[in-house]
Nucleic acid binder design. Sequence first.
DNA 1: AAAAATATTGAACGCTGTTCAATTTATCAA
DNA 2: TTGATAAATTGAACAGCGTTCAATATTTTT
Lengths: 204, 204
Amino acid sequence: MGIRERKEKEKTEMRSSILKAAMSLFIDEGYENVSMRKIARKIEYSASSIYSYFENKDMILFELLHEGFEKLKEKQLFVQGITEPKERLIAHGDAYMDFAFENSQYYELMFLIHKPKERFDLHKVKVLGDSCYELLVKNVAECVEAGYNKGEDVNNLALFLWSSLHGIVALYIRQAIILEEFNKQYLDNIKSVTLHFLQQLIKK
Amino acid sequence: MGIRERKEKEKTEMRSSILKAAMSLFIDEGYENVSMRKIARKIEYSASSIYSYFENKDMILFELLHEGFEKLKEKQLFVQGITEPKERLIAHGDAYMDFAFENSQYYELMFLIHKPKERFDLHKVKVLGDSCYELLVKNVAECVEAGYNKGEDVNNLALFLWSSLHGIVALYIRQAIILEEFNKQYLDNIKSVTLHFLQQLIKK
DNA sequence: AAAAATATTGAACGCTGTTCAATTTATCAA
DNA sequence: TTGATAAATTGAACAGCGTTCAATATTTTT
Protein backbone atom coordinates (compact mmCIF):
# COMPACT_ATOMS: atom_id res chain seq x y z
CA MET A 1 0.00 0.00 0.00
CA GLY A 2 2.55 2.59 -1.13
CA ILE A 3 -0.02 5.29 -1.70
CA ARG A 4 -1.51 5.08 1.76
CA GLU A 5 2.01 5.25 3.14
CA ARG A 6 2.94 8.34 1.16
CA LYS A 7 -0.35 9.96 2.13
CA GLU A 8 0.36 9.42 5.77
CA LYS A 9 3.89 10.72 5.38
CA GLU A 10 2.58 13.85 3.71
CA LYS A 11 0.09 14.27 6.54
CA THR A 12 2.72 14.06 9.22
CA GLU A 13 5.02 16.33 7.24
CA MET A 14 2.30 18.95 6.96
CA ARG A 15 1.57 18.54 10.64
CA SER A 16 5.14 19.11 11.67
CA SER A 17 5.56 22.03 9.31
CA ILE A 18 2.57 23.67 10.98
CA LEU A 19 4.15 23.05 14.36
CA LYS A 20 7.49 24.36 13.20
CA ALA A 21 5.98 27.53 11.79
CA ALA A 22 3.86 28.03 14.89
CA MET A 23 6.83 27.66 17.22
CA SER A 24 8.99 30.02 15.21
CA LEU A 25 6.23 32.62 15.28
CA PHE A 26 5.65 32.06 18.99
CA ILE A 27 9.34 32.70 19.57
CA ASP A 28 9.32 35.90 17.55
CA GLU A 29 5.97 37.35 18.51
CA GLY A 30 4.70 35.55 21.60
CA TYR A 31 1.83 33.07 21.74
CA GLU A 32 -1.03 35.54 21.94
CA ASN A 33 0.23 37.60 19.02
CA VAL A 34 0.29 34.64 16.65
CA SER A 35 -2.84 33.93 14.68
CA MET A 36 -3.92 30.94 12.68
CA ARG A 37 -3.82 33.15 9.60
CA LYS A 38 -0.21 34.09 10.34
CA ILE A 39 0.80 30.46 10.69
CA ALA A 40 -0.98 29.64 7.46
CA ARG A 41 0.64 32.54 5.62
CA LYS A 42 4.06 31.38 6.76
CA ILE A 43 3.70 27.94 5.19
CA GLU A 44 1.61 29.17 2.25
CA TYR A 45 -1.44 27.34 3.41
CA SER A 46 -4.93 28.33 4.42
CA ALA A 47 -6.00 28.98 7.98
CA SER A 48 -9.01 26.74 7.70
CA SER A 49 -6.93 23.78 6.55
CA ILE A 50 -4.95 23.85 9.77
CA TYR A 51 -8.13 22.74 11.49
CA SER A 52 -7.90 19.36 9.80
CA TYR A 53 -4.61 18.80 11.61
CA PHE A 54 -5.36 20.45 14.95
CA GLU A 55 -8.66 20.86 16.69
CA ASN A 56 -7.87 24.49 17.42
CA LYS A 57 -5.07 26.88 18.30
CA ASP A 58 -4.85 25.57 21.85
CA MET A 59 -4.11 22.09 20.59
CA ILE A 60 -1.11 23.43 18.68
CA LEU A 61 0.05 24.92 21.95
CA PHE A 62 -0.49 21.60 23.68
CA GLU A 63 1.60 19.76 21.11
CA LEU A 64 4.47 22.22 21.58
CA LEU A 65 4.02 21.97 25.34
CA HIS A 66 4.51 18.26 24.97
CA GLU A 67 7.69 18.80 22.98
CA GLY A 68 8.92 21.17 25.65
CA PHE A 69 8.43 18.70 28.46
CA GLU A 70 10.17 16.02 26.40
CA LYS A 71 13.15 18.31 25.90
CA LEU A 72 13.29 19.13 29.60
CA LYS A 73 13.11 15.50 30.58
CA GLU A 74 15.88 14.64 28.16
CA LYS A 75 18.07 17.34 29.66
CA GLN A 76 17.29 16.15 33.16
CA LEU A 77 18.14 12.53 32.34
CA PHE A 78 21.63 13.62 31.36
CA VAL A 79 22.59 14.37 34.93
CA GLN A 80 21.30 11.05 36.25
CA GLY A 81 24.71 9.60 35.53
CA ILE A 82 26.20 11.47 38.46
CA THR A 83 26.44 9.12 41.42
CA GLU A 84 26.91 11.42 44.41
CA PRO A 85 23.33 12.44 45.39
CA LYS A 86 23.96 16.07 46.29
CA GLU A 87 26.15 16.63 43.28
CA ARG A 88 23.44 15.13 41.11
CA LEU A 89 20.72 17.26 42.65
CA ILE A 90 22.69 20.44 42.13
CA ALA A 91 23.40 19.42 38.54
CA HIS A 92 19.69 18.82 38.19
CA GLY A 93 19.00 22.41 39.20
CA ASP A 94 21.69 23.63 36.85
CA ALA A 95 20.15 21.66 33.98
CA TYR A 96 16.72 23.04 34.80
CA MET A 97 17.93 26.62 34.56
CA ASP A 98 19.89 25.84 31.41
CA PHE A 99 16.80 24.45 29.78
CA ALA A 100 14.72 27.45 30.78
CA PHE A 101 17.20 30.06 29.62
CA GLU A 102 18.09 28.26 26.40
CA ASN A 103 14.47 27.49 25.56
CA SER A 104 12.74 30.42 27.15
CA GLN A 105 9.91 30.33 24.66
CA TYR A 106 9.21 26.68 25.43
CA TYR A 107 9.41 27.53 29.11
CA GLU A 108 6.98 30.36 28.56
CA LEU A 109 4.47 28.03 26.94
CA MET A 110 4.98 25.37 29.60
CA PHE A 111 4.81 27.43 32.76
CA LEU A 112 4.19 31.12 32.21
CA ILE A 113 1.37 31.87 29.82
CA HIS A 114 -2.19 31.77 30.97
CA LYS A 115 -3.97 28.68 29.71
CA PRO A 116 -7.74 29.19 29.99
CA LYS A 117 -9.09 26.17 31.79
CA GLU A 118 -12.41 26.25 29.93
CA ARG A 119 -10.67 25.40 26.68
CA PHE A 120 -7.56 23.74 27.98
CA ASP A 121 -7.18 20.42 29.74
CA LEU A 122 -4.83 21.55 32.49
CA HIS A 123 -4.83 18.05 33.89
CA LYS A 124 -3.04 16.75 30.81
CA VAL A 125 -0.41 19.46 31.18
CA LYS A 126 0.00 18.53 34.82
CA VAL A 127 0.62 14.91 33.86
CA LEU A 128 3.43 16.05 31.55
CA GLY A 129 4.87 18.26 34.26
CA ASP A 130 4.63 15.57 36.90
CA SER A 131 6.76 13.17 34.89
CA CYS A 132 9.54 15.77 35.08
CA TYR A 133 8.87 16.65 38.69
CA GLU A 134 9.06 13.02 39.77
CA LEU A 135 12.69 12.93 38.76
CA LEU A 136 13.40 15.88 41.01
CA VAL A 137 11.57 14.23 43.90
CA LYS A 138 13.60 11.09 43.30
CA ASN A 139 16.87 12.97 43.41
CA VAL A 140 15.82 14.79 46.55
CA ALA A 141 14.78 11.49 48.15
CA GLU A 142 18.17 9.98 47.43
CA CYS A 143 19.84 12.96 49.06
CA VAL A 144 17.76 12.51 52.18
CA GLU A 145 18.49 8.79 52.17
CA ALA A 146 22.18 9.61 51.90
CA GLY A 147 21.93 11.61 55.10
CA TYR A 148 21.32 15.13 53.80
CA ASN A 149 18.62 17.23 55.47
CA LYS A 150 17.83 14.50 57.93
CA GLY A 151 14.20 14.36 58.96
CA GLU A 152 13.13 16.79 56.27
CA ASP A 153 10.02 15.92 54.29
CA VAL A 154 11.12 14.95 50.78
CA ASN A 155 8.11 16.47 49.02
CA ASN A 156 8.41 19.74 50.86
CA LEU A 157 12.08 20.06 50.03
CA ALA A 158 11.47 19.19 46.39
CA LEU A 159 8.69 21.74 46.18
CA PHE A 160 10.85 24.47 47.65
CA LEU A 161 13.72 23.68 45.32
CA TRP A 162 11.42 23.75 42.32
CA SER A 163 9.94 27.05 43.51
CA SER A 164 13.35 28.61 43.78
CA LEU A 165 14.37 27.47 40.33
CA HIS A 166 11.09 28.43 38.75
CA GLY A 167 11.13 31.77 40.54
CA ILE A 168 14.43 33.00 39.21
CA VAL A 169 13.68 31.76 35.73
CA ALA A 170 10.22 33.33 35.68
CA LEU A 171 11.48 36.67 36.95
CA TYR A 172 14.16 36.70 34.29
CA ILE A 173 11.87 35.74 31.43
CA ARG A 174 9.28 38.30 32.47
CA GLN A 175 12.10 40.84 32.66
CA ALA A 176 11.30 41.72 36.25
CA ILE A 177 14.95 41.70 37.23
CA ILE A 178 16.71 43.20 34.23
CA LEU A 179 15.68 45.17 31.24
CA GLU A 180 18.95 45.68 29.44
CA GLU A 181 19.53 43.63 26.34
CA PHE A 182 20.69 40.05 26.76
CA ASN A 183 23.75 39.89 28.95
CA LYS A 184 25.37 36.50 29.28
CA GLN A 185 27.50 37.50 32.22
CA TYR A 186 24.48 38.65 34.22
CA LEU A 187 22.69 35.42 33.35
CA ASP A 188 25.64 33.34 34.56
CA ASN A 189 25.64 35.33 37.77
CA ILE A 190 21.97 34.66 38.37
CA LYS A 191 22.56 30.97 37.84
CA SER A 192 25.57 30.75 40.13
CA VAL A 193 23.81 32.70 42.88
CA THR A 194 20.92 30.28 42.75
CA LEU A 195 23.18 27.23 42.77
CA HIS A 196 25.12 28.73 45.66
CA PHE A 197 22.00 28.85 47.84
CA LEU A 198 20.84 25.43 46.73
CA GLN A 199 24.21 24.16 47.93
CA GLN A 200 23.50 25.75 51.30
CA LEU A 201 20.08 24.15 51.51
CA ILE A 202 21.27 20.61 50.90
CA LYS A 203 23.33 19.95 53.98
CA LYS A 204 24.52 17.11 56.18
CA MET B 1 -15.62 78.01 39.80
CA GLY B 2 -18.11 75.36 40.96
CA ILE B 3 -18.76 74.05 37.49
CA ARG B 4 -15.14 73.38 36.64
CA GLU B 5 -14.80 71.59 39.97
CA ARG B 6 -17.83 69.38 39.40
CA LYS B 7 -16.62 68.62 35.90
CA GLU B 8 -13.30 67.45 37.18
CA LYS B 9 -14.97 65.38 39.86
CA GLU B 10 -17.15 63.71 37.26
CA LYS B 11 -14.08 63.04 35.16
CA THR B 12 -12.22 61.33 37.97
CA GLU B 13 -15.34 59.42 38.96
CA MET B 14 -15.75 58.12 35.43
CA ARG B 15 -12.07 57.25 35.37
CA SER B 16 -12.24 55.22 38.52
CA SER B 17 -15.46 53.51 37.49
CA ILE B 18 -13.69 52.37 34.32
CA LEU B 19 -10.80 51.06 36.40
CA LYS B 20 -13.15 49.33 38.81
CA ALA B 21 -15.08 47.63 36.02
CA ALA B 22 -11.88 46.64 34.26
CA MET B 23 -10.38 45.09 37.38
CA SER B 24 -13.53 43.17 38.21
CA LEU B 25 -13.61 41.79 34.68
CA PHE B 26 -9.89 40.98 34.79
CA ILE B 27 -10.51 39.03 37.98
CA ASP B 28 -13.40 37.09 36.49
CA GLU B 29 -12.13 36.52 32.97
CA GLY B 30 -8.40 37.24 32.86
CA TYR B 31 -6.75 40.24 31.24
CA GLU B 32 -6.63 38.94 27.68
CA ASN B 33 -10.28 37.93 27.68
CA VAL B 34 -11.52 41.38 28.60
CA SER B 35 -12.30 43.77 25.79
CA MET B 36 -12.88 47.49 25.75
CA ARG B 37 -16.44 46.78 24.66
CA LYS B 38 -16.99 44.52 27.68
CA ILE B 39 -15.72 47.19 30.04
CA ALA B 40 -17.95 49.76 28.35
CA ARG B 41 -20.99 47.49 28.51
CA LYS B 42 -20.44 46.93 32.22
CA ILE B 43 -20.67 50.63 33.02
CA GLU B 44 -23.21 51.40 30.30
CA TYR B 45 -20.77 53.48 28.35
CA SER B 46 -19.28 53.31 24.88
CA ALA B 47 -15.98 51.68 24.06
CA SER B 48 -14.74 54.67 22.15
CA SER B 49 -15.35 57.02 25.07
CA ILE B 50 -12.95 55.06 27.25
CA TYR B 51 -10.22 56.34 24.96
CA SER B 52 -10.73 59.86 26.29
CA TYR B 53 -9.71 58.57 29.73
CA PHE B 54 -7.02 56.07 28.78
CA GLU B 55 -4.74 56.08 25.80
CA ASN B 56 -5.43 52.41 25.20
CA LYS B 57 -6.11 49.11 26.93
CA ASP B 58 -2.50 48.76 28.07
CA MET B 59 -2.72 52.03 29.95
CA ILE B 60 -5.66 50.69 31.94
CA LEU B 61 -3.46 47.73 32.82
CA PHE B 62 -0.66 50.07 33.83
CA GLU B 63 -2.93 52.01 36.16
CA LEU B 64 -4.05 48.79 37.86
CA LEU B 65 -0.43 47.64 38.00
CA HIS B 66 0.32 50.83 39.86
CA GLU B 67 -2.49 50.13 42.31
CA GLY B 68 -1.16 46.62 42.82
CA PHE B 69 2.33 47.78 43.69
CA GLU B 70 0.87 50.34 46.10
CA LYS B 71 -1.11 47.61 47.83
CA LEU B 72 1.94 45.38 48.08
CA LYS B 73 4.05 48.17 49.47
CA GLU B 74 1.39 48.97 52.05
CA LYS B 75 1.31 45.35 53.16
CA GLN B 76 5.08 45.22 53.34
CA LEU B 77 5.28 48.37 55.47
CA PHE B 78 3.10 46.71 58.09
CA VAL B 79 5.85 44.31 59.10
CA GLN B 80 8.47 47.05 59.41
CA GLY B 81 7.36 47.49 63.01
CA ILE B 82 9.04 44.22 63.97
CA THR B 83 12.42 44.98 65.49
CA GLU B 84 14.26 41.67 65.36
CA PRO B 85 15.78 41.55 61.84
CA LYS B 86 15.26 37.87 61.06
CA GLU B 87 11.76 37.88 62.47
CA ARG B 88 11.00 40.92 60.33
CA LEU B 89 12.45 39.36 57.20
CA ILE B 90 10.41 36.19 57.66
CA ALA B 91 7.29 38.28 58.26
CA HIS B 92 8.15 40.14 55.10
CA GLY B 93 8.11 36.88 53.16
CA ASP B 94 4.85 35.90 54.82
CA ALA B 95 3.30 39.23 53.86
CA TYR B 96 4.50 38.84 50.29
CA MET B 97 2.81 35.47 49.94
CA ASP B 98 -0.32 36.74 51.64
CA PHE B 99 -0.54 39.60 49.18
CA ALA B 100 -0.04 37.30 46.23
CA PHE B 101 -2.60 34.71 47.30
CA GLU B 102 -5.18 37.25 48.42
CA ASN B 103 -4.74 39.43 45.33
CA SER B 104 -3.77 36.84 42.80
CA GLN B 105 -5.27 38.83 39.95
CA TYR B 106 -3.20 41.88 40.86
CA TYR B 107 -0.17 39.61 41.16
CA GLU B 108 -0.94 38.19 37.76
CA LEU B 109 -1.02 41.65 36.21
CA MET B 110 2.13 42.72 38.05
CA PHE B 111 4.38 39.74 37.46
CA LEU B 112 2.86 36.99 35.37
CA ILE B 113 1.17 38.22 32.23
CA HIS B 114 3.18 38.98 29.15
CA LYS B 115 3.47 42.72 28.61
CA PRO B 116 4.54 43.37 25.01
CA LYS B 117 7.49 45.71 25.17
CA GLU B 118 6.63 47.44 21.91
CA ARG B 119 3.49 48.90 23.44
CA PHE B 120 4.41 48.82 27.10
CA ASP B 121 6.99 50.85 28.96
CA LEU B 122 8.52 48.02 30.97
CA HIS B 123 10.94 50.46 32.53
CA LYS B 124 8.08 52.23 34.32
CA VAL B 125 6.86 48.91 35.67
CA LYS B 126 10.35 48.12 36.85
CA VAL B 127 10.50 51.41 38.76
CA LEU B 128 7.30 50.45 40.57
CA GLY B 129 8.67 47.00 41.34
CA ASP B 130 11.99 48.33 42.52
CA SER B 131 10.39 50.49 45.16
CA CYS B 132 8.99 47.28 46.70
CA TYR B 133 12.17 45.30 46.17
CA GLU B 134 14.28 47.92 47.93
CA LEU B 135 12.41 47.23 51.14
CA LEU B 136 13.33 43.57 50.88
CA VAL B 137 16.97 44.42 50.24
CA LYS B 138 16.91 46.71 53.27
CA ASN B 139 15.52 43.98 55.50
CA VAL B 140 18.09 41.50 54.21
CA ALA B 141 20.86 44.04 54.78
CA GLU B 142 19.81 44.52 58.37
CA CYS B 143 19.88 40.77 58.91
CA VAL B 144 23.41 40.59 57.58
CA GLU B 145 24.40 43.56 59.74
CA ALA B 146 22.91 41.77 62.74
CA GLY B 147 25.24 38.85 62.09
CA TYR B 148 23.10 36.55 59.96
CA ASN B 149 24.63 34.95 56.87
CA LYS B 150 27.96 36.56 57.56
CA GLY B 151 29.91 37.44 54.43
CA GLU B 152 26.98 36.78 52.16
CA ASP B 153 26.28 39.32 49.44
CA VAL B 154 23.12 41.20 50.38
CA ASN B 155 21.84 41.59 46.83
CA ASN B 156 22.39 37.94 46.04
CA LEU B 157 20.54 36.80 49.13
CA ALA B 158 17.68 39.20 48.48
CA LEU B 159 17.40 38.00 44.91
CA PHE B 160 17.28 34.36 45.96
CA LEU B 161 14.65 35.04 48.60
CA TRP B 162 12.52 36.93 46.12
CA SER B 163 12.92 34.12 43.60
CA SER B 164 11.77 31.56 46.10
CA LEU B 165 8.73 33.58 47.07
CA HIS B 166 7.85 34.44 43.51
CA GLY B 167 8.39 30.86 42.43
CA ILE B 168 5.92 29.25 44.78
CA VAL B 169 3.34 31.95 44.16
CA ALA B 170 3.71 31.75 40.39
CA LEU B 171 3.46 27.97 40.36
CA TYR B 172 0.32 28.14 42.46
CA ILE B 173 -1.37 30.84 40.42
CA ARG B 174 -0.57 29.06 37.17
CA GLN B 175 -1.95 25.88 38.75
CA ALA B 176 1.24 23.95 38.11
CA ILE B 177 1.17 22.43 41.56
CA ILE B 178 -2.49 21.76 42.21
CA LEU B 179 -5.57 21.56 40.11
CA GLU B 180 -8.28 20.78 42.65
CA GLU B 181 -10.58 23.58 43.64
CA PHE B 182 -9.33 26.14 46.14
CA ASN B 183 -8.10 24.40 49.25
CA LYS B 184 -7.12 26.67 52.12
CA GLN B 185 -5.32 23.95 54.00
CA TYR B 186 -3.09 23.15 51.05
CA LEU B 187 -2.38 26.84 50.60
CA ASP B 188 -1.39 27.19 54.25
CA ASN B 189 0.90 24.21 53.85
CA ILE B 190 2.62 25.74 50.85
CA LYS B 191 3.16 28.93 52.81
CA SER B 192 4.52 27.21 55.90
CA VAL B 193 6.85 25.02 53.86
CA THR B 194 8.29 28.09 52.19
CA LEU B 195 8.69 29.96 55.47
CA HIS B 196 10.33 26.88 56.99
CA PHE B 197 13.07 26.92 54.38
CA LEU B 198 13.48 30.68 54.53
CA GLN B 199 14.09 30.20 58.27
CA GLN B 200 16.83 27.72 57.39
CA LEU B 201 18.43 30.10 54.95
CA ILE B 202 18.70 33.01 57.37
CA LYS B 203 21.18 31.68 59.88
CA LYS B 204 23.76 32.89 62.36
C1' DA C 1 -13.87 8.02 -17.93
C1' DA C 2 -17.01 8.22 -14.03
C1' DA C 3 -17.63 7.92 -9.23
C1' DA C 4 -16.21 8.28 -4.67
C1' DA C 5 -13.19 9.99 -1.31
C1' DT C 6 -10.14 13.43 0.32
C1' DA C 7 -7.99 17.96 0.65
C1' DT C 8 -8.30 22.75 0.32
C1' DT C 9 -10.36 27.01 0.21
C1' DG C 10 -12.85 31.58 0.63
C1' DA C 11 -16.63 33.60 2.58
C1' DA C 12 -19.04 34.37 6.63
C1' DC C 13 -19.99 35.03 11.82
C1' DG C 14 -19.21 37.46 15.79
C1' DC C 15 -15.61 39.00 18.13
C1' DT C 16 -11.19 42.22 18.98
C1' DG C 17 -8.47 47.30 19.63
C1' DT C 18 -8.64 51.56 17.79
C1' DT C 19 -9.89 55.88 15.02
C1' DC C 20 -12.78 59.46 13.59
C1' DA C 21 -16.54 62.13 11.63
C1' DA C 22 -21.04 63.05 13.15
C1' DT C 23 -24.10 63.93 16.76
C1' DT C 24 -25.64 65.01 21.20
C1' DT C 25 -25.10 67.54 25.44
C1' DA C 26 -23.43 71.19 28.32
C1' DT C 27 -21.53 75.75 28.98
C1' DC C 28 -21.07 80.55 28.05
C1' DA C 29 -22.08 85.31 25.98
C1' DA C 30 -25.38 88.47 24.38
C1' DT D 1 -33.95 82.99 26.44
C1' DT D 2 -31.44 82.40 22.37
C1' DG D 3 -27.44 81.51 19.56
C1' DA D 4 -22.64 80.28 19.52
C1' DT D 5 -19.04 77.66 21.26
C1' DA D 6 -16.97 73.96 23.55
C1' DA D 7 -16.97 69.36 25.34
C1' DA D 8 -18.54 64.73 25.68
C1' DT D 9 -20.35 60.78 23.50
C1' DT D 10 -21.35 57.79 19.97
C1' DG D 11 -21.82 54.45 16.00
C1' DA D 12 -19.74 53.21 11.97
C1' DA D 13 -15.65 51.73 9.97
C1' DC D 14 -10.99 49.33 9.52
C1' DA D 15 -8.16 45.54 9.75
C1' DG D 16 -7.48 41.89 12.37
C1' DC D 17 -8.92 37.57 15.28
C1' DG D 18 -10.61 32.05 15.97
C1' DT D 19 -13.60 29.16 13.97
C1' DT D 20 -17.17 26.89 10.84
C1' DC D 21 -18.90 25.28 6.66
C1' DA D 22 -20.59 24.91 1.98
C1' DA D 23 -18.35 24.96 -2.32
C1' DT D 24 -14.53 23.74 -5.05
C1' DA D 25 -10.41 21.36 -6.50
C1' DT D 26 -7.64 17.37 -6.32
C1' DT D 27 -6.61 12.56 -5.81
C1' DT D 28 -7.79 7.79 -5.53
C1' DT D 29 -10.62 3.97 -6.66
C1' DT D 30 -13.78 1.56 -9.49
